[in-house]
């Protein structure tokens, strides 16, 4: 996993609540055995007017030319609800997003983002509203500073928090499997004490 330190990027506002993982990456694009090839299908049903994905929907916010280079997605509450498909964060990441900001995330999606190095940031509803307002008025550039847990834009600065280990893992690009494998003796000791039925 790549290390995450700071990121400055353009925000695209997607002011919709309960965006589920079926919307983020519909099921017909899950038939791959690799981790790549999902970005082009991100938000497929909203992004394209036709099923085949040949006609771009000009009204969908992500397709607007002014947001072409966006790397920060500002989203509505309960973002990423539904299925556990990690293809959702893969698709967001491959499209070019580095950060997703919302007032709340579904649990599995949130964990999946951390595990692939896509930074999910929870801010308060009031802060999110302020960001939506700012991004409606003009193109909004934000700087996300993970070590200091801040999201800033000029004078404006919001704090966010992450679980201690998730923060460490993202900052250091930890191989989580390797990290746990270093504790194999502890796991074996646990197994030795398990009841027979387990």
């Amino acid at each position: 996993m790549e290390k995450f330190n700071t990121h400055t990027g353009l925000v695209v506002p997607l002011d919709v609540a309960n965006v589920d993982t079926d919307q983020i990456i519909p099921k017909q694009f899950l038939q791959k055995t690799e981790r790549v090839g999902f970005g082009v299908h991100l938000f497929h049903d909203s992004r394209y007017l036709d099923h085949a994905g040949t006609q771009v929907n000009p009204d969908f916010v992500i397709n607007k030319p002014e947001y072409k280079d966006a790397s920060i997605l500002l989203a509505g509450e309960n973002f990423g609800c539904g299925s556990s498909r990690e293809h959702a964060p893969w698709a967001l990441q491959e499209y070019g997003f580095k950060v997703i900001i919302a007032s709340s995330f579904a649990d599995i999606f949130y964990g999946n983002c951390i595990n692939v190095g896509l930074l999910p940031i929870k801010l308060s509803e009031a802060e999110i509203e302020q960001l939506f307002k700012l991004s409606a008025d003009a193109q909004l550039m934000l700087t996300v500073d993970l070590p200091n847990n801040t999201v800033t834009c000029g004078e404006l600065s919001f704090k966010f928090s992450l679980n201690e280990f998730q923060q460490y893992s993202l900052e250091n690009g930890v191989d989580s499997v390797g990290w746990t494998l270093d504790k194999l003796d502890t796991i074996k000791a646990f197994e030795a004490k398990m009841p027979a039925w387990q």
């Binding site: 556990s84 990690e86 599995i108 999946n112 595990n115 499997v177 746990t180 494998l181 194999l184 796991i187």
Partner: peptide, 15 residues
């Protein structure tokens, strides 16, 4: 439910 990175973690560590 878990994501694919977690599937890998369970495969390799059973945790």
């Amino acid at each position: 439910g878990i994501g694919t990175s977690e599937v890998e973690h369970v495969f390799a560590t059973q945790t």
